[in-house]
Design a protein around this nucleic acid. Structure first.
Lengths: 323, 323
DNA sequence: ATGAAAGCGCTAACAC
DNA sequence: GTGTTAGCGCTTTCAT
């Protein structure tokens, strides 16, 4: 920057003004400066800028695993939302290392103006302790007792809708393939199941621990077949797809022999054979709302009203009347 | 930091030394300082640190679309590799906005110590012009004439292997579902096709423009059916899966009526019905090599020997002898 | 072993 | 309108 200033015969301050398009700088001078910038191929240091301004215009995202299309979509949607306000997104995948989630979050937050934390399995106490040091911070699919901006998918209601759909098709014996025990969103699905049971004594819903990945669904297929249920509610689409893969391989026809539903409406759900009945979630809407609140917090407001987004049933080919 | 210094009754320099575990600091003093840090909940500013050191220990990644499992895996593998050296990864998805790729890359590079560019469709001249301003920089699946660290998947050879596999199964009329025309990796696949043709005059391989997404594969299914080929080589697994979805929906049996192969070996390829025959790519290996070279460049060495990784055939259920 | 002070590249009063 | 100057929070000589 000093070089530019010298080259253009002005002061660093003027260069700074030109870069930031300050209106108080003379036409001619500005052009000279711009010429020097172009000639010397100068690029302002964003690091120095951040330090001086105390602001980086960067949003941090911490997520467990972007290969899960659901997590990827929250990230991607956030990036889109943030980009609309001129913010970049720095993301860190915590992968298997749940133990490093906290320190990762702290580190990421340190380089950014705000952070969104996607940590479905982080211990609640640990999270509650962490949150105050992370402000402004948003949390996805968890409750925080007002410690953060929060947006949640209404998994409980989603599961209720799924059960209702299967019920209408005549299914009375249902099986839920449960996700990670410690996952908050799994617990909500379980709660949804409970209220569905309560509302309909004629219904039997069993729970089978399974997991959250393709391989988990695939692995559970045999137990599902022998279980006797006619309708299966998978933890999510990924599990449902893994399950269906194995089922079809073994000659079980979905939906003729067995109806299967997932959750999330990932891209592939529409193209599987049969296409998957599932709950679609407006993640872009969730991200937009979250980002709006976060931006307000960055500007000093307090926005702690939890956002609850309702998923909607998408009926495709993997469900049919009870055999 | 000043507060810590005052609280502990030492100077800022000493605090800095304690933070950086300098050995030249007295045991007792160090403990006092650490106590103050803990008590006041102090976290050093990485931004200031970066500015002072001229180094951020962060790697930037620019990729078009992380929802593509292939791109996601290069990102994820890079993050794993970089994490091993204590580096964070800042990623930006350029999404549809190919026009913003350059400026995004510049911006990201500006906040990081190095960058890896995944831009299969960026104009070559634009890229060649951009590269010098991005050093140290690595590029995936493109050639740069020595302007950058590069790692490439040998798509040409992969396609040759795929053709050979189908040929052995008796297929003589093949159809290639081509990806984006401007994509470098698509051009390499085409080159592979050409050498396969040259080596085997008895073989007929047609090319049909299709795309790179699920929906593209899905959409092409009808034309594929009427085309008459008995073996289909999809641009990648995503296209293959989209195609198979529609095919099975329409009662075409894969692999009995038609053999289908993909490329990349994405996670779901193993769980589709039928599981997909495809070319597996050791992306973690590619990322490790790339990161090794990049790290060397960060340290001032020059590492421009292109890395070429050979994919390997994974035979699953989507291919069978010609009907 | 510790402190004082300069400097990383930028912005923002404040002066002219 | 433009230049001067003081800082943003840290690291790192150079003294002591």
């Amino acid at each position: 920057m000093k070089e530019i200033a010298e080259h253009a015969g002005v002061s660093k301050a003027t260069v700074s003004r030109v870069i930031n398009a300050s209106p108080t700088v003379g036409r001619e001078i500005a052009d000279t400066v711009r010429a020097s910038i172009a000639e010397l191929g100068y690029r302002p240091s964003l690091t120095a800028r951040s330090l001086s301004l105390g602001v980086s215009r960067t949003l941090g995202v911490v997520a467990p695993d972007l290969s899960n299309p659901m997590f990827h979509r929250v990230f991607s949607s956030l990036q889109r939302a943030a980009a609309g306000s001129g913010y970049r997104v720095l993301v860190a995948e915590t992968l298997e290392d749940a133990s490093l989630e906290s320190s990762t979050a702290i580190d990421i937050r340190n380089r950014t103006d705000a952070i969104v934390l996607v940590a479905p399995r982080m211990d609640r106490l640990e999270m509650l302790e962490l949150l105050p040091t992370l402000q402004p911070v948003a949390v996805v699919n968890r409750t925080t007792g007002g410690q953060a901006v929060v947006a949640r998918v209404d998994y409980a209601q989603g599961v209720v809708d799924l059960v209702a759909h299967l019920r209408e098709l005549g299914h009375r014996r249902l099986l839920f393939l449960s996700g990670p025990e410690s996952s908050r969103s799994n617990q909500e699905r379980l709660a949804g199941l409970e209220s569905a049971r309560a509302a309909d004594p004629d219904l039997r819903i069993d729970v089978m621990p399974c997991g959250h990945g393709f391989d988990d669904g695939y692995r559970c297929a045999d137990s599902v077949r022998t279980h006797g249920a006619t309708g299966v509610i998978a933890f999510n689409d990924v599990v449902a797809l893994g399950l269906m893969g194995k089922l079809l391989e073994d000659g079980v026809s979905v939906p003729r022999d067995l109806s299967v539903v997932g959750f999330d409406d990932i891209a592939f759900a529409r193209y599987s054979a049969p296409p998957l009945t599932t709950m679609a979630v407006d993640l872009q809407g969730l991200a937009d709302a979250l980002w709006g609140d976060l931006l307000a917090e960055i500007d000093g407001e307090q926005r702690r009203e939890p956002r609850l987004v309702a998923p909607s049933l998408v009926i495709r080919g993997s469900t049919a009347p009870r055999p």
